[in-house]
Design a protein around this nucleic acid. Sequence first.
DNA 1: AATGAATGAGACTTCATTCAT
DNA 2: TATGAATGAAGTCTCATTCAT
Lengths: 205, 205, 205, 205
Amino acid sequence: MSTLVRTKKDVVTEFRTSEILEAARKIFAKKGFHDATVDDIANAAGVAKGTVYLYYRSKQEVYIAALKFGISQMYSALIEEVARYSTAEEKLKALIAAKLAYFDENSDFFKIYLSELGKLHTHPGTIDSEFKALYIEQARLIEAILKEGIRKKAIRSLRPDQTAFAISDIIRGVVTHRLMGWSKTRIAQDVDFIFDLIWKGIAAP
Amino acid sequence: MSTLVRTKKDVVTEFRTSEILEAARKIFAKKGFHDATVDDIANAAGVAKGTVYLYYRSKQEVYIAALKFGISQMYSALIEEVARYSTAEEKLKALIAAKLAYFDENSDFFKIYLSELGKLHTHPGTIDSEFKALYIEQARLIEAILKEGIRKKAIRSLRPDQTAFAISDIIRGVVTHRLMGWSKTRIAQDVDFIFDLIWKGIAAP
Amino acid sequence: MSTLVRTKKDVVTEFRTSEILEAARKIFAKKGFHDATVDDIANAAGVAKGTVYLYYRSKQEVYIAALKFGISQMYSALIEEVARYSTAEEKLKALIAAKLAYFDENSDFFKIYLSELGKLHTHPGTIDSEFKALYIEQARLIEAILKEGIRKKAIRSLRPDQTAFAISDIIRGVVTHRLMGWSKTRIAQDVDFIFDLIWKGIAAP
Amino acid sequence: MSTLVRTKKDVVTEFRTSEILEAARKIFAKKGFHDATVDDIANAAGVAKGTVYLYYRSKQEVYIAALKFGISQMYSALIEEVARYSTAEEKLKALIAAKLAYFDENSDFFKIYLSELGKLHTHPGTIDSEFKALYIEQARLIEAILKEGIRKKAIRSLRPDQTAFAISDIIRGVVTHRLMGWSKTRIAQDVDFIFDLIWKGIAAP
DNA sequence: AATGAATGAGACTTCATTCAT
DNA sequence: TATGAATGAAGTCTCATTCAT
């Protein structure tokens, strides 16, 4: 029952939570973890500093929550997009396209995502494992596509896990270039390039 | 003249400089930029805090210098290694092998390198352009190999700059996995995997 | 009239008041004034934080009220006990025994009491005078016994007020030792010791 | 050697230390532990806030140090004073007189001392044991006098430790009254009163 | 009357940078 | 040139109090 009945408190909590998370995403993206202050976030969210601490125990917790929030949003979007196609080839291309599009539209979020990814090694043990799980989950999506492709002989025999990470990395790289303004080409063109490179690399002979 | 005659002052300066940089690399790698203190670095370098400020104007400047120091070291090593081979295929494989080996042997440095790469977007304008240049210079190395391969018809026709970045990203990804302990395989095996994937992707038909 | 007719409101008020006071006593005793939060007290009392402020204007006010509440309880107990004896000697011994017993049974309350006594000087003007009155009232009880003893020649001629405080202090000291676990002897033994010392000191020759 | 040669650093350290301790004593006495801010102390000491942390790791540490500083000062004074007399009777009277005088002259310090004594029970485990030791050491001084008196038959047979605490408590009580302005009499008179009461209570028949 | 979410002042502590020696 | 004591700005987090419901 309690899961069906949303009390008013639940509504407020959800509202505040997303309000704060949205603000945090923006601020962290702009300033990075250390240079962002809790005050910044509170202001951006339109609440007082103390209010932030009503919903999160520390600045770190806000950070992680903002990260997860965005990642799971993206993850859902990808899943949905991929599901619309049937062959491994189509699925892979769709995933690349969706990810590039998502990051283009949510560049602020992308900034924290990448920054965190880069820091993963530096301070293992802190945010580490939580984030690692989310990161790996992403790769699993690609891995699943690869496995299916291999089973159907569309893709040559290779280690799906390792390859999944490699593909993930290429995408990340291109996304980075786009975001930094190093790549001036249109999305479609980048998608084609990545896909072409990868597909040539993995397609069955 | 001043480049020929090294005064005692120059010697001391160079000695202090490398001492500090070596220490900084270690400390930044262990703690990250914000959690590393100037005191930490000074202690590790065996000098007083004030002395650090005699050679660098700020903590940031030490950071950048340490970064450059390490990158140029690696760059030289790569150049040298690549020069030992003649075909694009061999050169590419040698480069991959050398980079993986280098990072395995200098994992502490690698940590700052990657962390910084991840932050590039977050604080554009700060360290940004200096580092971007160094990053791009790395890619140029691969680009040169690709161009030569294309000219000699060993590699199919594709945009060398874009592809160079893609290759760079895959390598970076694998290095990351190795460092985080996600990849338990030996270097040689990872080299083979990467090279195989890439070469299939770029080789002329 | 209002003292005869107890409206429902009065009943509720009294109930809430004692509920809160009882909780406050416990919490303040455990954590001290500053480390106890209004939330702690509200929770322990089973009411919401805001409710506390319906009955008391500030945390301080709760504190003082809790103090008074406990002291007057003890005072009543002492009066009653002393009244059961007739000679000064018996009364004094009874008072000592009763006080030691009371504190042994209400060690939590005792903690705030002592703590406050110790702070009296530190922040004169705050709680000061209110509490001072309660403290002195305690001493008056002893003073009355002394005066009667002097009148009946059982006690030698000495300043009753000053002596009353001295006796009060000795008792307080022993109570402290008991509470801190420094004194392992049974109550009866401590009572005998204190009484013996005092009585030798004040008895008529 | 190093104990003989006082470097300049030692001198500065000692100067700063006592400067800060003197200021801390004053501020803590006026405001109590919680209401005193580190800024208050720094200002009173004529240094910046950060400087305080150069010599003490936390506010608490400053507090404890200030406490010890004062107590050991007083302890030395008492030892010296007591040593000037030979009989237990004289020694005891001298000790009472000296303690009353000391507190009259250092009423600010006395305030923290008493306040801490009162809090001993409230938060056992924090400052507790350190302070307890200092407190007990004080009582030992009285205990030693009592033991000697008992051996020489000047004092009747009683438990020296328990009695020492009792005497200590009486003195503390009188000191309190004096400090709060409740006792308007001159020191000498209070000394006589306390001594008379105690001596009658403990003297051999 | 009762609640508890929201507020925001304020405290401790850290550390990059300066500067007198 | 080298030192390291001193500075003080700035950041995180707590909690007494308020007030709309």
